[in-house]
Amino acid sequence: MRTIDRLPLDEETPRPVAVLHQSFVSGAKTRWHSHRRTELLHASGGLLVLSTESGTWTVPAGHALLVPADLPHELAGYGCSEMRAAFFTDAALGAALPRECRVIAVSDLLDIALRSLASGPLLYDADGRGGHLAALVVDEIARAKEIHIALPLPQTMRLRQLCRDMIQKPSLALDLDGWARHAGVSRSTFTRRFRAETGLSFAEWRRRLRMLHTLTLQADGVPLRQAARTAGYRSSNALRDMMRRTMSETVRPDGSRREAP
């Protein structure tokens, strides 16, 4: 995978919202870096994968990722050719300012507003068309549904190493008792610690990992049947059903979960 220092973006434009087009060759990966502003990443196709010390977030087509300011991260692209990066001041986002990374669904209106603002001058007229587009971008972000496809990592070193081993080989087929023995704890201790440190059951975490792995392979053109075998599923139908259930999960404005229609 080709490694680059960071995306050459001008995030210090003296405007509350700055949106730029950026080419991001498939297979490219940035080094660890951070930004002084909150960042939003939106690819026109393929898959973006962003990693921090606490977890991994996948951003499929039709979605975007909000990254808090000053958060060290690395970014990889699969099947991508073009993306938009937007930078926001704290005052611009207001109540929508993220405290942690969030994947959101991108509405048609948000997509058009991002493209339109990126196509205009960076120093747009804050009281004219550019200012109206910037306000629309912020409003659509505030209304956007959050998609729960983060892959949080445990804090306990032994559990974290176990998760990293699984990330390297998602098809590992140990059952829960086997993973508990691998971590050197009882089944009950393993399940309790894992949920406490990730917010997910081990089964939920492993499903998300396998979905992430599958999305990455598909973005690189790997057929679903082959991706299913690599992810540890016996059939592409079983994998497809799991991904549909996982991707349909959203959050209501009051924080409760539901299945998207």
Rank of each mutant, 00 (worst) to 15 (best):
V106H: 07
E197C: 10
T216E: 03
A219M: 06
D241V: 12
P152T: 09
S44M: 10
E140W: 03
A260H: 13
L172S: 03
L75P: 03
I141V: 15
G199P: 09
R240C: 05
S119T: 01
L151K: 04
P14C: 05
C101F: 05
A219Q: 08
T38H: 11
Y78H: 15
K169A: 14
T214M: 08
L47R: 04
A260T: 09
L110Q: 07
M1R: 05
R252S: 10
D70S: 14
S81D: 15
A92H: 03
S188P: 00
C80S: 05
V137T: 07
D5H: 11
P8E: 00
K169M: 13
Q218K: 13
L209S: 07
T52V: 07
L174G: 13
H35E: 12
P261C: 00
E12K: 11
L40A: 11
A227Y: 09
C163Y: 09
A86I: 02
A180V: 02
V67S: 08
A113E: 09
L93G: 00
T13H: 06
L97M: 12
H73N: 08
P154R: 06
L117T: 04
L215K: 04
L176F: 09
P253Q: 10
W57P: 03
T189Y: 09
D125P: 13
T250R: 14
E12A: 14
G62K: 02
V185F: 07
R258V: 11
L110A: 04
D220S: 14
A43K: 08
V103G: 01
V59G: 00
P121K: 11
M211T: 06
T13W: 10
R193N: 08
M83S: 07
G232F: 13
W179A: 04
M211S: 02
P253N: 11
I4D: 08
I147C: 13
A183H: 00
G199L: 15
V25A: 15
L117I: 05
P98W: 03
R36E: 14
Q155T: 11
E11D: 12
V138W: 02
V106R: 02
H132G: 03
R99D: 14
P121I: 12
R192T: 14
T52Q: 02
D220E: 15
T214I: 13
G45D: 00
L123F: 10
D177W: 03
A86P: 03
S119K: 05
E82W: 06
L224G: 02
I141N: 05
D125G: 09
C80A: 10
H42A: 09
R195T: 10
L7G: 04
A150W: 02
A238D: 14
S26Q: 11
A173E: 11
V49E: 05
S23D: 13
A92D: 05
